[in-house]
C-alpha cells in the first residue's frame, strides 16, 4: 500500500546515507564551481582572437556525452595506463579510485569540476560582458579598487546569470547519474552511491517498484524545494535592482 512504501522509504538507512552523500556532493560542487567559474570569467580576454579561442576551449567538455565523460576519466585515472593515474602513482602516491573511497571522491570531484565549471564560467562571462563601459569608467573616476569594482559592480550585475548557474548546477549535481555510474558504479562499497544510483538499484535491480516510486516522488520534492529556496534567496539579495 502507498503509505507503507513512503514509510519504508523514509526509514531506509541506506537511503539516508545516500541523501547525505548527495548533499555533500552538491555542496562541494557549488562551493568549488561557482567561485572558480566566476574567477575564470574574470580572467577571460575581452577582445581579440583570445575571445573565441577561450570560448571554444571552455565549451569542449560541455559537448561530450555524459557516459563518455565517465569513460574518459576511467582511463585517465587508471593506475597502470592512465595519464593521471600512472603519473601520480609513479610519484609514489598510491592512487586508485576503485580501491579507496577518498580517491573515488577526489576523482569524481575533479571530473565534475572539469565537466561543469565551464558552464558557470560561460554564464558569468556573458554577465560580465553585458556591463556597460560607463560603469568601469565611473569606477575609475571614483577611485575604486579592483576589489571594489568586483564587489559593487561586477558581482551585483552578474546576479541574474549566477542565479541561473547556481540553480542549474544544484539540480544537475543533485540528479547526477551517468558519470559516477560509469566511473565507479557507486563504489567502492557504497561510498559514491548517490540517490539516483540507489534509486535505479531499488527499481531495476531489486524490482521494488512501490518504494522506488515513493522514493522518486520524495527525490523530486527535495530538488524542487531547494531550487525554490535558492531562487528566493538570490532574488532577495539585491532587492529593487532593475538593471
Amino acid at each position: 500500500m502507498g503509505a507503507e512504501w513512503f514509510k519504508e522509504t523514509l526509514t531506509d538507512s541506506r537511503l539516508h546515507d545516500a541523501l547525505w552523500r548527495q548533499f555533500l556532493f552538491s555542496g562541494l560542487v557549488l562551493l568549488i564551481e561557482m567561485p572558480l567559474g566566476v574567477g575564470i570569467a574574470l580572467l577571460m580576454p575581452r577582445k581579440g582572437w583570445g575571445v573565441s579561442a577561450s570560448l571554444v576551449t571552455l565549451a569542449l567538455p560541455l559537448l561530450i556525452p555524459w557516459n563518455v565523460i565517465g569513460t574518459i576519466w576511467i582511463i585517465f585515472t587508471r593506475p597502470d595506463i592512465g595519464l593521471f593515474g600512472a603519473a601520480i602513482n609513479n610519484l609514489g602516491i598510491a592512487f586508485d579510485h576503485t580501491a579507496s573511497p577518498l580517491h573515488a571522491w577526489i576523482t569524481l570531484m575533479f571530473m565534475e569540476v572539469w565537466h561543469w565549471t565551464p558552464l558557470v564560467a560561460l554564464l558569468a562571462y556573458a554577465g560580465l560582458r553585458a556591463i556597460p563601459e560607463a560603469y568601469y569608467q565611473a569606477a575609475r573616476i571614483d577611485g575604486a579598487s579592483a576589489w571594489a569594482i568586483f564587489r559593487y559592480i561586477q558581482l551585483p550585475k552578474m546576479r541574474g546569470v549566477l542565479t541561473i548557474a547556481l540553480l542549474l548546477r544544484f539540480m544537475d549535481s543533485f540528479l547526477i547519474y551517468a558519470e559516477p555510474f560509469v566511473l565507479t558504479g557507486g563504489g567502492p562499497g557504497n561510498s559514491t552511491t548517490f540517490l539516483s544510483i540507489y534509486l535505479v538499484k531499488i527499481a531495476v535491480g531489486q524490482f521494488d517498484l512501490g518504494p522506488a516510486a515513493a522514493f522518486s516522488l520524495i527525490y523530486f520534492l527535495i530538488v524542487l524545494l531547494f531550487s525554490y529556496l535558492f531562487f528566493q534567496a538570490l532574488q532577495n539579495v539585491g532587492k529593487g535592482e532593475d538593471r
Partner: peptide
C-alpha cells in the same frame, strides 16, 4: 555619464 551609473546594492 549618459546613463546614470550607480552602485545598485548600496
Amino acid at each position: 555619464f549618459q546613463f546614470p551609473v550607480l552602485y545598485d546594492t548600496m
